[in-house]
């Protein structure tokens, strides 16, 4: 049963990624082509998912929107990993002053409501999806930091780390070649979870109008414009809403599966 759920999640994600990659070829229409004569049309043979207030084909926008949303999620994770993992390894490696300082910064970041923090960062960096996702990446950095720190600290206690020092490894080499590879598995879980959360974050920011700028399609942006036409064309919210929900669920399922798969691994060295 759990396996089936996992395969379904994997299938959903693969489908979205393939659609996103092949968007120009599989999308029936240009996602930004307006057709004011057929605006706010419900589902039909020509427009499977209907059209929005400018008469743009919803299916095409959904497919192109997948590109934006998935890319945004990847950017969030990349920023989070790049900032969180090195600092986390450093903190786990050097308990005391360095750990204290880095952990306080992380705690401070976590104590600020994430959306507010993201809004502030966007205000500083300027609007646009790139800076919005960079902001979300910073918001998620403490998560990666904490996981990297905890598992580094754990691996640090192993004898083979002392052995690495004994043969003359620099601390840099020990951290990079011996600690990090052994501390990766909890990070993999975290990556899946944050990918899901980032999709939601992109949707929220685009919904608020500070993420993707029109006319570019994104799931959050579609949701936002569907909301504005809720009374005339309620059906418009379904496609982006379900796409977001499915993707987030799929990433979460993947994260759960990774947690189980990696959690039962044999203890280090045995």
């Amino acid at each position: 049963m759990r396996k089936a759920y996992y395969y379904a999640a994997l299938a959903v994600l693969v489908a979205f990624v393939v659609l996103a990659l092949l968007a120009p070829w599989v999308a029936p229409y240009d996602p930004n082509a307006q057709d004011l004569l057929s605006r706010l049309k419900p589902y039909s043979a020509e427009h499977w998912l209907g059209t929005d207030e400018y008469g743009r084909d919803q299916l095409s926008r959904l497919i192109f929107g997948a590109r934006v949303s998935l890319l945004a999620a990847v950017e969030v994770v990349a920023v989070g990993l790049l900032l969180g993992v090195p600092s986390g390894v450093l903190a786990g490696f050097f308990p005391g002053l360095i750990d204290g300082a880095l952990s306080r910064i992380s705690d401070a970041l976590m104590s600020v409501p994430s959306l507010v923090l993201a809004l502030t960062i966007v205000a500083v960096l300027g609007q646009g999806l790139g800076s919005a996702m960079f902001a979300v990446g910073i918001v998620f950095t403490p998560r990666f930091f904490r996981v990297a720190r905890a598992s580094t600290y754990e691996v640090r206690q192993e004898t083979f780390i002392e052995a690495s020092f004994a043969i003359g490894c620099s601390w840099w080499r020990v951290a990079w070649r011996h600690v990090l590879p052994n501390a990766m598995s909890p990070l993999v879980v975290q990556i899946a979870v944050v990918l899901g959360a980032a999709i939601t974050a992109e949707a929220s920011l685009s919904f608020l109008g500070i993420g993707v700028q029109p006319p570019t399609a994104s799931w959050g942006g579609m949701l936002s414009s569907a909301y504005q036409n809720l009374y005339e064309a309620a059906y418009l919210i379904w496609a982006p809403g379900i796409a977001i929900a499915l993707t987030v669920l799929a990433f979460t399922a993947l994260g759960d599966e990774a947690r189980v798969a990696l959690g039962t691994r044999q203890p280090v060295g045995a």
Binding site: E158, T159, F160, E162, A163, S164, A166, I167, G168, H178, P181, N182, V268, G269, A270
Partner: peptide, 18 residues
């Protein structure tokens, strides 16, 4: 350190498992 090496008590954890 090349002149001085160490062999540890627990053989199962003294080598990087990966």
């Amino acid at each position: 350190r090349r002149h001085m090496q160490m062999i540890f008590q627990d053989p199962f954890s003294s080598l990087d498992p990966r």
